[in-house]
């Protein structure tokens, strides 16, 4: 008896497995219930968030459609929750109240001061220019790097020329940020003094995405003109 009492009491393995199984089952049920219960609301929220972001950069837009420009040079419509094929660039076509194309929005990212600055910019096919942009995510220093959204001189950069070269393979002029006050051409971005790195990131983000996207969608603009 004595020896038994001093032994540490151990739970038999079978009981342990049983209990753990039961607890896992309970937890699994709770998670599945939560996922099912919130699925619709989450999807709706995501859609609204995307729409809002696009409407902000294309003020005339009243509805949007999601497209991808594949590596083969095709433009395809993206279904709800669909995945983007490898090598393809996703973009949004914004349509005004009459169903006419108001602008094309795409995301781009480039290394900023603290982390990658991700932006959503709007391209107007008629003006062949980038008309505006919004920040998707950024960790830039508050009060310095985040001036890109409010600095009047910086916002005066837009519309920013983004015209395709004659051969249709790339932009006629590379978009890039230049030192504050030395902007000479409509395709240059006049950087904010004191926030040059963030300004440069915006320029690079627009340039990288535009170089990849615009040559692909230019031949298909007619298809995008009307809301389908």
């Amino acid at each position: 008896m004595n020896a038994e009492a001093t032994l540490p009491q151990t739970t038999p393995a079978a009981a342990m497995v049983r209990t753990l199984g039961l607890i896992s089952a309970i937890c699994g049920l709770i998670i599945v219930a939560a996922y099912q219960g919130t699925y619709d609301a989450v999807q709706e929220n995501k859609r609204i968030a995307v729409e809002r972001a696009v409407f902000k950069v294309i003020p005339a837009a009243k509805s949007i459609a999601e497209y991808v420009a594949t590596a083969a040079g095709e433009v395809e419509k993206l279904g709800a929750g669909g995945t983007v094929p490898a090598g393809a660039v996703k973009f949004y076509a914004g349509y005004d109240a009459a169903g006419k194309l108001a602008g094309i929005a795409a995301e781009g990212g480039a290394k900023g001061y603290a982390d990658t600055v991700r932006i959503l910019f709007a391209w107007d096919p008629e003006k062949a220019a980038v008309t505006g942009f919004g920040v998707v995510s950024s960790r830039e220093t508050p009060g310095i790097g985040d001036k890109i959204l409010v600095d009047k001189d910086f916002l005066a950069n837009f519309p920013l020329e983004a015209r395709l070269a004659a051969d249709g393979q790339a932009l006629a002029h590379q978009i890039r940020a230049v030192k504050h006050g030395s902007k000479a051409n409509p395709w240059e971005v006049d950087a904010i003094a004191g926030a040059t790195i963030t300004s440069r990131a915006v320029g690079k983000a627009i340039n990288d995405t535009a170089q990849a996207l615009l040559p692909r969608i230019a031949p298909h603009l007619d298809k995008l003109k009307e809301k389908s």
Binding site: I30, I31, A34, Y35, G37, T38, A41, V42, N45, I48
Partner: peptide
């Protein structure tokens, strides 16, 4: 669960 709930309330 709370992760899903917050996504559902506000992204």
């Amino acid at each position: 669960v709370v992760d899903y709930l917050i996504q559902a309330v506000s992204l």
